[in-house]
Design a protein around this nucleic acid. Structure first.
Length: 157
DNA sequence: TTCGGAACCT
DNA sequence: AGGTTCCGAA
């Protein structure tokens, strides 16, 4: 599509033959939206084994994760954003803004436990991957992709 | 601990 | 828009 929202063939979901609704392909609704977003960062940490003592997927509910060391996650996030004063109080406020956006929600009763709304974010900000020059998938995508495609299927539009 | 308003920033 | 900072309330 001319607007920069077409589905690249190299898109794993596409090659897997999955159909997604139009809203899922929203690529550049806002200029800075694809870089350094908190939920990308969370997914990035979640994907790396060396951070399992800090943040990890939770056994049980699909897409659920636990922040095992809140201040350390905050420190890493602050490091990424060059905000040395970052702490869990502030980071968690940012996470709470995701509730209305339906990117995340809180698992009530479970301490430091949140859950991703994968069906809503799967292609939110999905970059336009070039067919001719396939760029490596964003690191956050690998985390989502792995969890999403291994788990329950998607009904489609 | 968790929540969400409000002001502020880029 | 997507946080960051601060904070009172539950």
């Amino acid at each position: 599509q001319a607007g920069g929202c077409s589905v690249a063939v190299s898109c794993p979901a596409h090659s897997a033959g999955l159909a997604f609704p139009d809203w899922a392909y929203k690529a550049e609704s806002s200029p800075g939206s694809r870089q350094n977003q908190l939920w990308h960062f969370i997914l990035e940490l979640l994907q790396q084994e060396e951070f399992r003592h800090v943040i990890a997927w939770q056994q049980g509910e699909y897409g659920e994760f636990v922040i095992k060391d809140p201040e350390e996650v905050a420190r890493l996030w602050g490091q990424r954003k060059c905000k040395p004063q970052m702490n869990y109080d502030k980071l968690s406020r940012a996470l709470r803004y995701y509730y209305n956006k339906r990117i995340l929600h809180k698992t009530k009763g479970k301490r430091f436990t949140y859950k991703f709304n994968f069906s809503k974010l799967i292609f939110l900000n999905c970059p336009l991957w070039d067919v001719r020059c396939p760029s490596p998938l964003p690191v956050w995508w690998r985390a989502v992709g792995a969890r999403f495609f291994v788990g329950a299927g998607y009904g489609g539009a």
